[in-house]
Nucleic acid binder design. Structure first.
Lengths: 330, 330
DNA sequence: CTGTTAGCGCTTTCAT
DNA sequence: ATGAAAGCGCTAACAG
C-alpha cells in the first residue's frame, strides 16, 4: 500500500522532483515533451498528489468550507447547492458541515476548517457575534457570512433584508382582514428577530393583538403545533392568518391542517418565509416571502472566490431584496 | 497574520517542540504540570494546530469523507444525518459532498478525499463498479459503500435488500386488484434495478401488463409526470396503482394528483420506496417500502469506524431488511 | 527549461 | 519525562 510520491515519478521519468512538482502546479513553464511524458507516467503509476503536503508547502487546497445550521432544512441545502454549483465550475470543492444551531459545534467546525487550511469559508452563523467569526477572521482565511449580518462591520456577508421581508408580510396581511394574527418563529436567530421587527413595524394593530409562538424549528414541530393552535386559538373557528417565518415549518403546519380538513386559505390563511423549492410545488402553493435562495448561495460563493483573489479589498455586503410571492395559501 | 506554531508555544513555555507535540497527541505521557502550563499557553495564544502538518507527519486527520449522489434528495440527507450523528459522538468530523449522479464527479471527489488523507470514506456510488471504488480501495483508506452492493466482494457495504423490497411491494399490490399497474423509476442505478427485479418476480401478471416510466428523478420530475400519466394512461379514469421507486419523486406525483383532485387512493393508489421523513408526515401519508434510512447511516458510520480500528478485518456486509409500511396512499 | 536546496508544522524514534 | 533530529510529500526561491 506504499503510496506513490513525486519522487517515485521523478525517478521513473529521470528528472528532478522539482520538475515533477512544476507539471503539477505550473505546467506552462515546463517543456512540453517532458511534461507529457511525466503526465503519462503519473497516469500509469496511479499517482495522486498529497494535498496535505501541497497545502503545507504553501499551495492552495482548492477546497472551501461551508458551515450551515441544519441539514434537514431545505433552505440551507438549496444554498449549498448554489454554492456547490459555482465552486465546481471553478474547480473548487465544497466541504459541507452543519452546526445544528449549536454554538460550540460551530466553533469546533471553524477550528477544524482553519486547521485544515481551506482556502475560504462560507458560514451561516448561529449568532451575529459568534466566536467562530472572529476565529476565522483572525486566521486570515477569506470569509463570507450568509443568512446573517455580522456585528463586525469588516466582514463580508450575503443575506436577504429580513426586516423589509417582515414588512412585506405585514403589508399583505393588513389587507387580509382576519380576526386574529398569529406569528410563529423558531430559533432565537437574528434573521427571525428582524423578520418579526419588520413585521411588527408594518402590522396594523387595528387588526387586534398578535399572538406569538416561538421555538418551532422543524417540519415536525410545525406539524405538532397544529392541535395546540386549534385548542388554544380556535384557528378552525376564527378567521386566522398565520405568519410563519420559515417555510419548512410552514409546510409541516399546512400538512396537518390539510389532514384535519381545515380550509386553507378560507379559514386559516398562511404566509410563509423563504420560498424553498417545495413551497411552490406543494398541494397548496405557499404565499411567502421569497429569498431567492439559490442566489444567496451563488452570490456568496462568487464573492468568496473574488475575496480570495483580492484578499484586502473592502468587505462585500449584499443585502438582497426579498420579493413577496402570492400563491394559494392566503 | 503570522500563524502560531508549535515552536512558538515551545519557546513561550521553555520546552522543546517535541513536548508540545506530545501534549497534542499523547497527553498522558507528559508531566501533568508542564502539560497544564502548555495547555494554558496554547489557549492564551490562540493556538490552532495545523492539520495538514499533523496529517503529513502521520497523525490521523479525524475526518471522514461522505460522498452522496444528490443533495436535494432527503434520502441522502437523512443518511448523512445519521452518519454525522455517530461521527460526532466519536469526535470525528464529516465532510459531505455530492456526485450529482455523475461518475466523473464521483471519481474526482474520491481523488480529492484520498488526496486530503481522510481517515475513512463512505460512498454511495453511481454504479456498483464505479472507478472510485477501486481508487479508494487501492489507496488503502477504509471504505464502506452505502446504498449499493459493489461488485468487488472484498468491499464492505451497508444497504437495504432492494430486491426483497420490490417483492414486498409486489405482494401488496397483487392484492389491490387494480385495472392497471405503472412503475416509475429514476436513474439507471443498481438499487432501482433490483427493486424492479424483485417487483416483477413477485407481481402477479394476471393483473395485466406493467407499464414503466424511467428517468423520473426529482420531486419536480414526478410533479411533471402527472399530466402525462393522465393523458397516456388515463389514470384518472382507470383504477390504477403506481409503484414509484423513490419517495422524493412520489411526493411530487402526489402533490400534483392532489392538486388535480384525483382521489388517492380510490382512483390512484400509490406505493413508494424509501420512507423518508416526509413520507409519514405528508397530507396523505405514504404506503411505502421502508429502508430505515437513519440506520443505514448509523450502521455505515459505525462499521467504518470499526474498520478503521481493525484495518484488516474481513469486509462487513449489511443487507438490511426492508419493511413494508401501509399508510393511506393505497 | 531544469536541478538543488531549504523549508512548511508536526510526529516520532532514539537518546538522555 | 523530555530533547534532538529526521522525515512526511510537496513548493518555491535560487542557481545554472
Amino acid at each position: 500500500m506504499k503510496r506513490i510520491t513525486i519522487s517515485d515519478i521523478a525517478k521513473a521519468a529521470g528528472v528532478s522532483k522539482a520538475t515533477v512538482s512544476r507539471v503539477l502546479s505550473k505546467p506552462g513553464i515546463v517543456n512540453k515533451e517532458t511534461r507529457v511524458r511525466i503526465l503519462e507516467i503519473m497516469e500509469r503509476m496511479n499517482y495522486i498528489p498529497n494535498q496535505l503536503a501541497q497545502g503545507l508547502a504553501g499551495a492552495p487546497t482548492r477546497t472551501i468550507g461551508v458551515v450551515i445550521d441544519e441539514l434537514s432544512n431545505p433552505f440551507f441545502i438549496e444554498i449549498a447547492e448554489g454554492v456547490d454549483w459555482v465552486l465546481n465550475s471553478q474547480n473548487y470543492s465544497m466541504q459541507l458541515s452543519s452546526s445544528r444551531w449549536i454554538e460550540e459545534r460551530e466553533t469546533a467546525l471553524a477550528r477544524s476548517l482553519i486547521s485544515s487550511r481551506v482556502d475560504g469559508v462560507l458560514l451561516a452563523p448561529v449568532r451575529p457575534d459568534s466566536p467562530a467569526i472572529q476565529m476565522l477572521k483572525q486566521s486570515g482565511i477569506p470569509l463570507v457570512i450568509i443568512n446573517c449580518i455580522p456585528v463586525d462591520t469588516e466582514i463580508s456577508y450575503v443575506t436577504c433584508d429580513n426586516r423589509s421581508g417582515g414588512r412585506l408580510a405585514a403589508d399583505y396581511i393588513n389587507k387580509l382582514q382576519k380576526e386574529q394574527t398569529i406569528v410563529i418563529t423558531g430559533f432565537e436567530h437574528q434573521s427571525l428577530k428582524d423578520r418579526i421587527t419588520g413585521f411588527l413595524e408594518g402590522f396594523n394593530t387595528n387588526q387586534g393583538p398578535v399572538r406569538r409562538y416561538q421555538g418551532i424549528k422543524t417540519f415536525g414541530d410545525g406539524y405538532d403545533l397544529v392541535p395546540i393552535l386549534m385548542t388554544r386559538d380556535q384557528i378552525h373557528e376564527k378567521k386566522t392568518v398565520l405568519f410563519v417565518t420559515n417555510d419548512n415549518v410552514t409546510l409541516g403546519i399546512m400538512e396537518h391542517l390539510a389532514e384535519l380538513s381545515v380550509p386553507i386559505p378560507d379559514k386559516v390563511a398562511i404566509v410563509g418565509y423563504d420560498d424553498i423549492r417545495l413551497s411552490s410545488m406543494c398541494r397548496i402553493p405557499l404565499t411567502t416571502v421569497s429569498q431567492s435562495i439559490r442566489d444567496i448561495g451563488r452570490i456568496a460563493a462568487m464573492e468568496l472566490l473574488d475575496l480570495m483573489a483580492h484578499p484586502d479589498s473592502p468587505p462585500r455586503k449584499h443585502l438582497l431584496s426579498p420579493r413577496f410571492v402570492i400563491r394559494e395559501s392566503s
